[in-house]
Amino acid sequence: MSGSREQILGRIRSNLTQAAGPLRETPEVLEKRTIAHERGIRPSRVDKDAAGLVDLFVQRAEKVNATVARIASIDDIPDALATYLANENLPAAFRMSDNPDLNAVPWDKRPALEITKGASDGKDEVGLSRAVGGVAETGTLILASGKESPTSLNFLPETHVVMVKRSEIEGTYEDGWDMVRAKGALSRAVNFITGPSRTGDIEQTIYLGAHGPRRLHILLVDDA
């Protein structure tokens, strides 16, 4: 309601102007600050070289119950995924996002794998997505929605498998935002995913698989 808008903003403005302290800035200064992407404190745990960051990413992701498979090249993905599915007693079937990198995987190496593509309708047991990148500081994956990455695939399947390349592992969330921005316009949904779904709502004990995936498996492809 436009009346309320003016009323709320008016009250904010008049209270802030009356008490104008040293923190009140001109619109020009604020405008600049809003587009400058200035960063704050960088946690020292990411003071590492590229290999160190990849190790930290893996260590942090495993700490929050994700599993990580380090894979030499995309050619090895079909074997790695088929083995994972078999070990977890999951069907050799999954829905994946229609992504060029995932499409480039030589799936015919494992013809038994049954592949569907697109958004999930909730019936898929396994989803395979492509991440924009990974953040080492907390073992976090960044996924950005779009025709190559439907958001429903990140949350509906019980098992979520995500492919990310070694060269896409950066230190901090801020580094992650640079990767997202480099892709162009900001996607409708950007998901920072750190481990599988969990809840502490029953007697404050953590259980995995509340509403989202019970398992998060990361295919870390060595492209360096």
Binding site: K63, V64, T138, G146, P150, N191, G195
Partner: peptide, 24 residues
């Protein structure tokens, strides 16, 4: 809050479904 390093899901939503989007 919970003593976690980071919560499982942090999601940034910007506007409704875009023409090319498959869901949302």
């Amino acid at each position: 809050a919970t003593g976690q390093d980071f919560s499982s899901y942090t999601t940034f939503s910007t506007g409704p479904r875009r023409p090319e989007d498959l869901d949302g």
